[in-house]
Nucleic acid binder design. Sequence first.
RNA 1: GGGCCUGUGGCUUAGCCUGGAUAGAGCGCCGGGCUUCUAACCCGGAUGUCGAGGGUUCGAAUCCCUCCAGGCCCGCCA
Length: 554
Amino acid sequence: MLCTLYHTIETTLREVTGQDEVFLGEGGEHADLASTVAFGLAKIRKKAPAEIARELAASLATREEMREINVEALGPYLNFHFRREIIERALQEATRPGYGSLSPRSERVVLEHTSANPNGPLHVGHIRNTILGDTLARSFRKAGYPLEVQYYVNDMGRQIAIVVWGFNTIADTPVPGEKGDHHVARIYIAANRELEARPECVAEVDRLMQLVEKGDPATVLLFREAVTECLEGFRETLQRLGARHDRFVWESDFIRNGDTDRVLAKISHMPECKNDGKLWLDLSSCGFEKEYVLRRSDGTSVYAARDLAYHTWKGRNFDRVIDVLGADHKLIGAQLIATMGLLGERAPEIVHFEFVSLPEGSMSTRAGKFVSADELLDEVTRRAMEEVTARRPELPETERQEIARSVALAAIRYDIVRISPEKSTVFDWKEALDFERQSGPYIQYAHARACSILEKAGEFEECVILENEHEMALARQIIRFPMVIESVVRELKPHLLAGYARELADLFNAFYHFEPVLKSEGLTRRSRLTLVKATRNTLAEALQTLGIDALSTM
RNA sequence: GGGCCUGUGGCUUAGCCUGGAUAGAGCGCCGGGCUUCUAACCCGGAUGUCGAGGGUUCGAAUCCCUCCAGGCCCGCCA
């Protein structure tokens, strides 16, 4: 509803000014929406900006489509205020389940995220991918898109060959209770150490890679077993993180089904294609100096070739293809996009995130230098349990554990999603264990407070009469929610939702502190209860989209 | 050496794409608030040459150029 208003004002402003581009943005403390068109027009019309703003305000005020919006010129600024009735009407929508969902769209979206190599457990770097991707996925569903979430399983890389080689050659003493992914990591780390000590064994790894590409049944089986063991561990971790994939797509399938050969055959006819033993593309016309190698001189394909086949398949089956990838994939991602363009196939949109490192340096699965997602979840849950037990000693243990699990997940997910992806970060235990302001639990807490009021209030008849600044500020924030969802999927920026939810909690806490709800009377009580209900509902919808449980008590 | 990303109070960070009203938060620090709807909370205060320099503009954290610092990439790895 707010989106409609925005477009109405924008269109009207365009007509009134005669300009194609009119800036209309958030008005902050001054207004609901504001425009600075008067500055630009000042030069054209050779008049003072303030005078132009005054004239525009006067002419806008006469327009029929602006009847529910107050326009005022404040100096050179054109400020738009929504009439109270609009806000009150929008607020009533906000009390209903599913608030913030946009109308269904037909554009099919495929979103790939995480896709970590199955050579060791997911660590705190990988889960930045998972959380970014899963929050985007939830946002797309909220925005009404039919969506499929995929995990691309790199099951035929050198790393997996090393794992398989390790399983064949290294004496393995089983560790009781060890998850598959941690087991694979242990073998992978040992195998790398062994290969470093005995470089002559590298040939055995190469041999495995050739056999698997040729489809040698025994080798294929070994690879599949190793990958499956690791993937079982991933599934468990992903589930704990609240992330779900609809489909696991195996890289090797694009060899077996002939797609890789087909795409390479097509490429071999392109003018950019070079074949000097190895097959590669000259993308210098697109600004890439490096050779984009697709097939080795021994005839085996490289990752890039399989990736082209995978993306061709995605592009032909979906209208919008989105990948969440680490910053280390920027070059290869740009080359992929350029090549898809040359092939006339739909290119993906790629969300890149910068690296997470440890205080002592970058993470490395091979060197065993990483903090696994499982360790992180365990430790944060343990701390959350301490916190819950200290605050709510009267609750039964199982309930405290359930709350602690939700609080821990909230802390982890929020801590990661709040930071814009282009910032590189250093993992910090202190921050991960912070449950205070600008944290996930802080937002959950606001929701729990709202639930508590509503539970005590019992039945009431909804009505909205906004009486003071705290109520107005809270209401304004609530009605922005659908536009935030819209922005997240348009700009692929999940951190906008994180910021929105935190601000909503801030405003609710201030309202909570200054305006008594249960102790107020008559219409005021009913109206405040309605506002609490709208807040509770909006917080719940926002939290759910962030993959965080909206707890009713904590 | 080349390319991409980042640089905002002691620390973490929003805003940058699309220039505009006093640069917005959290942590930490100082001072206040629990017989009152959950104090995982609220209120007030101190703390900023928006990495440096130049340019464009009526106006620059935001656009352009140069430089500095950090991260990532530049493989017949994935």
